[in-house]
Design a protein around this nucleic acid. Structure first.
Lengths: 114, 114
DNA sequence: GGCTTATATCCGCTTATCCGAATATTCAAA
DNA sequence: TTTGAATATTCGGATAAGCGGATATAAGCC
């Protein structure tokens, strides 16, 4: 009878939320992941790119690192962050695609073709 | 010089966050989307499935509807919700895949093969 | 109209999340 | 070992988000 389960097991759901979903729920973290998809970057570089206070950027990077989505490498006093899970960027791109599609449909509904 | 932009335009980022990312940031909404991926369901059915208070389920469904991810159809006194953007479930599945991969790697790092 | 079922909304409350200035830490060069 | 640059962390406060009992609304039935 039961084929595809209708619910995600609670513990998996919990991990999914804590490690991925919640992480993607902040615009700055999205930008950080997106930026890192083009290659490793120092905190400084990311701070300038995002035009945000250094403490804010560092805090978000720490979140990403704690969740294992990003890793660091020291080079003297600078710390270089790089993406561990590139699939995340694919997901971000998918979401952008969905957004575009939704906006297109909204537009369509305003100016019907037929 | 500049090929792929390193940042997502702020207004797009805003919409992305408000309409999709933030939405996926709540476990109950994930479950609702997941459940709806198997077909339209009444609020009642979803309430029983999630084992959550009816007001909670209804509130989350309202959020999903306001964001255009889900739509409703009345049938007498019952309201049936259905998924408008099935791509969302693909994304959820991708995230589950990432999670599995991450856990596998964690495992691996504990018991090295070589 | 009165009653029942189904859904939506309200409201006070609690918790989660983010912010950014200030401060601490780390490292290397002088 | 003092200084400076880069990064991390602390901390108080603001805002957002979620909760669920209670209540309102809507539709159908008798």
């Amino acid at each position: 009878m039961s084929d595809t389960p209708t619910l995600i097991p609670v513990h998996e759901l919990q991990m999914l939320h804590d490690n991925i979903c919640q992480t993607l729920g902040d615009p700055k973290r999205i930008q950080l992941l997106y930026a890192l998809s083009q290659g490793p970057r120092s905190v400084n570089a990311l701070t300038e790119l995002l035009e945000a206070p250094q403490s804010t950027v560092s805090r978000h990077l720490a979140v990403l690192r704690q969740r294992g989505l990003v890793e660091t490498q020291r080079d003297g006093t600078t710390v270089v962050y790089s993406l561990v899970v590139p699939e995340l960027v694919v997901i971000i791109e998918s979401m952008r695609g969905i957004l575009r599609k939704m906006l297109a449909q909204q537009l369509e509904s305003l100016s019907p073709t037929s």
